[in-house]
């Protein structure tokens, strides 16, 4: 009998702390699968964010560092410059990458650092209790936009489109977790983003629309539908650059 599926080598056996229906678990597994398939586990250095994925290093089985909130790309920049032979990636949420860390994000991108960036956009701050994220949709209720986000609180920040305009950025794609077919596309995008680094292409970012049933106040099923019906209208899927 042929074994057709198993836990990726790059994923530890620890059960995750993520809520039911959360996208992080799938995204972690995709990263681990891609790392295995590219046979780079022993070369990878990952930078975990501050946010729900703060202990991603408990799940991945390769070298990892934490970073202060928003600073992952500063940390990654130094590591990659010193160790170009390694494969360095950051895994960051919307608050980390597009609010507190916007400066680090834009400048690492603008320098064209040869890095892979995995950007989880779930339109809300999960770890701290469901507050507004820079990517929260207009009208979306959060702990800090109890009446729904209004324009004065900021429009949903399209950081991927913004980054795509920078010369140093070589690849940007937005994918989603809301259906199996989309997850497979996400994996292809991640593979591309890692392969780019291996080939020395330059700054590559994959934005993943990811469900947060807990702070969206929806079931996992409804959350998937909300991405499909609402979120991708604001954040269209596909290759941005």
């Amino acid at each position: 009998m042929e074994k057709i599926y198993s836990r990726p080598r790059s994923l530890r056996e620890n059960p995750t702390h993520y809520c039911p229906g959360c996208g992080h678990g799938i995204a972690h597994k995709l990263v681990a699968q891609v790392v295995d398939e590219l046979d780079i586990r022993e070369k990878v250095i990952a930078i975990a964010p501050v946010g729900c994925a703060v202990i991603a290093y408990d799940y991945w089985d390769f070298d990892c560092s934490e970073a202060a909130h928003g600073r992952a790309l500063a940390v990654a920049t130094a590591i990659k410059r010193l160790r170009p032979e390694n494969v360095v990636f950051t895994y960051q949420g919307d608050g980390d990458l597009a609010a507190i860390g916007t400066n680090e994000t834009i400048h690492a991108a603008n320098r064209g650092e040869n890095l892979t960036v995995i950007f989880i956009n779930n339109a809300v701050y999960g770890m701290t209790g469901g507050q507004m994220a820079p990517t929260t949709l207009l009208g979306q209720k959060t702990a800090t936009t109890p009446r729904g986000r209004v324009a004065q609180e900021g429009l949903p920040l399209k950081i991927s489109e913004l980054l795509a305009g920078l010369g140093g950025v070589k690849y940007v794609e937005r994918v989603s977790m809301h259906a199996p077919a989309e997850v497979l596309k996400a994996k292809r995008a991640l593979t591309q983003a890692f392969q780019n680094q291996i080939d020395g292409v330059g700054f590559s970012l994959v934005e993943i629309l990811s469900p947060c049933p807990t702070y969206w106040g929806k079931s996992p099923q409804k959350s998937a539908e909300w991405i499909r019906d609402v979120m991708i209208k604001e954040f269209p899927l596909g290759r941005i650059k």
């Binding site: 970073a67 500063a74 130094a78």
Partner: peptide
């Protein structure tokens, strides 16, 4: 060796964090 003019002092010290994490003097 590596020299980077960072975008801020915050970025600079966090770059040093990353550099040090790889085991070099930073």
């Amino acid at each position: 060796r590596v020299f980077i003019q960072a975008e801020s002092e915050l970025a600079a010290v966090n770059m040093v964090f990353g550099a040090s994490a790889t085991g070099v003097r930073a």
